[in-house]
Each structure stands twice: as structure tokens, then as C-alpha cells.
Simulated scan of single mutants.
Amino acid sequence: MRSSVSPTFGGLVQEFFTDYMVQQRALSPCTVASYRDAFLLMLHFAEQHLGKSPSALQLADIDAKFLASFLEHLERDRHNTVRSRNIRLAAIRSFLRFAARRDLSNLRVIEQALAVPMKRFDRPMIGFLSREQMLAVMDISTASWLGHRDRLMVTLLYNTGARVSEIVGVRVGDVILGPISFIHLHGKGRKQRSLPLWKSTARDIRDWLGRNPQPTERSPLLPTRQGNAMNRATVCQRLKLATKAASDRHPELANV
């Protein structure tokens, strides 16, 4: 006979992250990490504003009022953008829909919490650089190891139109050089795509690999000096330096 005892909040969270997300849905590690971060923030907020530790929290505590207060806290106190706020809400909504199938006694609370809406926001118009401006940004000296890497990084971004997360995730084995050269990119949600490389880009990669003869197929194509993959913050920093240098010839780039 099935037990009529409602599952605990902690038990639901554990099942959601271990069995549901990883085993049943096989979500990517990045998605799991994003959901985890949302829950850590929510649990910390609950401890401060409800006076309950994570182990003492109940599903009924995650009601519409609490959820609205948490989202307001993200924007007001943590200065999260509306986009980030909505991502956190999406993670909690996914958990609540999961919990609704396992804890019928709190179905009304869950229904009301799920009614908390996503916030609309204006998407800014994406600008672009002219060919001359882009070539100026790409004109990084390859005399140093760091400059050589940065030039290839900017060239790949321009050639492929890839996201930063895709470029920093490229391994040496993802690049196929030959009569027709191309690159494998690994995107969000395990999506993969292959894009052609210009002959000049393929030539730049050959020169770069010739300068770094030790990497294996699993090594990052664009490593740090320590041999690790670059991260988004590092790419942003290096792009700012390249843009600043290019602004000497194109002053309008100083405001990019």
C-alpha cells in the first residue's frame, strides 16, 4: 500500500536534482548548475527572511508571496537583470511542476506560486561593427604568445559568429583542417553544429598549433597560460583591450 505521508521539501529537492534532472531528463551540467545556483540563492533568502534553515523548510513555505519577495530581492538587492530574474524563476517553476506530481496536499500552494509571472523587458537592438572596424580590432600583434592567442580568438568569433561559451569550449580535436576546413561547436543543451572556416582562419590555426606543439585533441584550442580553458570574463577583458587599441584608428570604438 502506498504511503499517504507527504514527501519532505529536502527529499523533493534531492530527487529533483539527482533522479529527475540527471537521470530522467539528462539535462546538461550547465543547466543543472544554473538551477543549483537559483536554489542556493532561494534557500539563503528563506533562511534570512523566514528564519528557517534549508532542512526545516517546507514546500508550503514556497508560496506566491515568498516567491514574489525573493524575485524582488534579486532585482533590488542583488541587482540582477530582468533576464537573470526570469532564469531563476524558470528554475523554481520547473521544481514546482515536478513537486506538484508528488505532493498533492500542497497542490493549491504550488498552483498559486506557479502563477507568479515572468517579467517582460525590452530587448536592446544589437549593433554591429563595420568591416574596417572589425579588422582593426583583429589587428593584434602575434609577436607574443598572448597576442597570438587573442588574435585567433577574435578571428574565430568573427568567422563563426559563435557565442563566447562556444568558443572557449573548443578543443583542438574540434578543428578539422584540410581542403575544406571546419570547426565543431558545442552549444547550450548539448546542441552541436559544424561551421566552415575561412582559408585565412585555417592558416591562423595551423600557425597557432605550430607554436603550441604539445596539446592533445582534448586540450583547449585557446588556453590560458596555465593550460586551462578561458572563461567569459577573460574573453571580455581581452576583447576590451583589443577594442581599446583599435580605437586609436577608429575613435568611435571607444564607446563600444
Rank of each mutant, 00 (worst) to 15 (best):
A68L: 10
F70L: 06
L71C: 05
L71S: 04
L71A: 00
E72L: 14
H73S: 04
E75F: 00
E75K: 02
R76E: 12
D77Y: 00
D77W: 02
D77E: 15
H79K: 14
N80M: 09
N80A: 05
V82G: 08
V82M: 08
V82N: 04
R83M: 04
R83T: 12
S84C: 05
R85N: 11
R85Q: 10
N86F: 03
N86D: 12
L89F: 06
I92Y: 04
R93C: 03
S94R: 14
S94G: 14
F95Y: 07
A99C: 12
A99Y: 01
A99H: 04
A100W: 03
A100K: 05
R101W: 01
D103C: 12
D103V: 10
D103P: 01
L104G: 04
S105P: 00
N106V: 03
N106W: 00
L107I: 13
I110W: 00
Q112C: 00
A113Q: 02
L114D: 06
A115Q: 13
V116S: 01
V116H: 04
V116F: 00
P117Q: 11
P117K: 14
M118K: 10
R120E: 06
R120H: 11
F121W: 13
D122P: 01
P124E: 00
P124M: 02
G127A: 09
G127D: 10
L129E: 08
S130Q: 13
R131C: 11
R131S: 13
E132S: 14
E132K: 12
E132V: 12
M134R: 12
L135A: 14
V137W: 05
D139G: 08
D139R: 14
D139M: 14
I140F: 09
S141V: 07
S144H: 13
W145D: 15
W145E: 15
G147V: 14
G147A: 12
R149S: 10
D150E: 13
D150C: 11
D150A: 10
R151K: 15
L152F: 06
V154P: 06
T155K: 01
L156I: 13
N159Q: 09
G161V: 07
A162G: 08
A162P: 03
A162Y: 08
R163Q: 06
V164R: 13
E166K: 09
E166I: 09
I167L: 11
I167K: 04
I167M: 09
G169A: 10
V172A: 03
V172S: 01
V172D: 07
V172H: 03
D174M: 08
D174F: 03
D174N: 09
V175K: 02
V175F: 01
G178M: 05
I180W: 05
